[in-house]
């Protein structure tokens, strides 16, 4: 191989590493930033944090929806599975619980049209013991985010959704 060919090869290899590395790195990096913000730098792990009504000053996550009330649980499955529950909103207003892995993938989603009496499941890692008779979601990562979204496009509906979501659970199995 000629000197010039070796240098071109080195250049292309470095460019490929830089390109692919950035593309693979960004989702994990941004998810970690979001988890740090939502959990208040790790203070709120395995418990829901209840967001206030979305306004122009909402800056935790990009492109927030002003139509929805958000509650967020940063999960850590290192010490075992978690029980996740969401109570329905009044008058069967839209509620969904979605689970995101550390690479941003939406690995599971449930809504109250499927479960009008509320959403309930166990979140675990592969290999962890889970109870029978309850839905189980397996996360490919130890950490991630569970997001409760409720339709709340005005102040009145937000207040009702906020009251309902206060009984949400994101806690260790007992």
């Amino acid at each position: 191989m000629t000197h010039r060919a070796k240098m071109i090869l080195a250049f292309l290899a470095a460019a490929a590493i830089g390109h692919v590395g950035l593309v693979l790195f960004m989702p994990h990096f941004l998810m970690n930033v979001a988890m740090d913000r939502v959990s208040q730098d790790g203070k709120l792990i395995n418990q829901f944090a209840f967001g206030s009504r979305t306004t122009q000053n909402s800056r935790t996550v990009v492109r927030p929806s002003p139509d929805l009330a958000y509650a967020t649980c940063v999960y850590d499955l290192s010490d075992g599975p978690l029980l996740i529950e969401a109570a329905p909103s009044p008058e069967q207003g839209y509620v969904s619980l979605s689970v995101f892995a550390a690479n941003t993938d939406n690995i599971a989603v449930f809504d109250t049209s499927q479960s009008p009496d509320g959403i309930r499941f166990v979140l675990a890692k592969e290999g962890q013991a889970t109870p029978t008779g309850v839905k189980v979601v397996i996360s490919p990562s130890s950490r991630g985010i569970v997001l409760d979204r409720r339709l709340a496009p005005n102040a009145e509906l937000f207040a009702a959704a906020d009251q309902a979501r206060r009984s949400d659970k994101c806690q260790k199995l007992t």
Binding site: L24, M26, P27, V62, R63, S96, F100, N106, L147
Partner: peptide, 12 residues
């Protein structure tokens, strides 16, 4: 995935 992480993280 990277594009969504930048412009629409936690999308449904």
């Amino acid at each position: 995935r990277a594009r969504v992480a930048i412009s629409g993280l936690l999308a449904l």
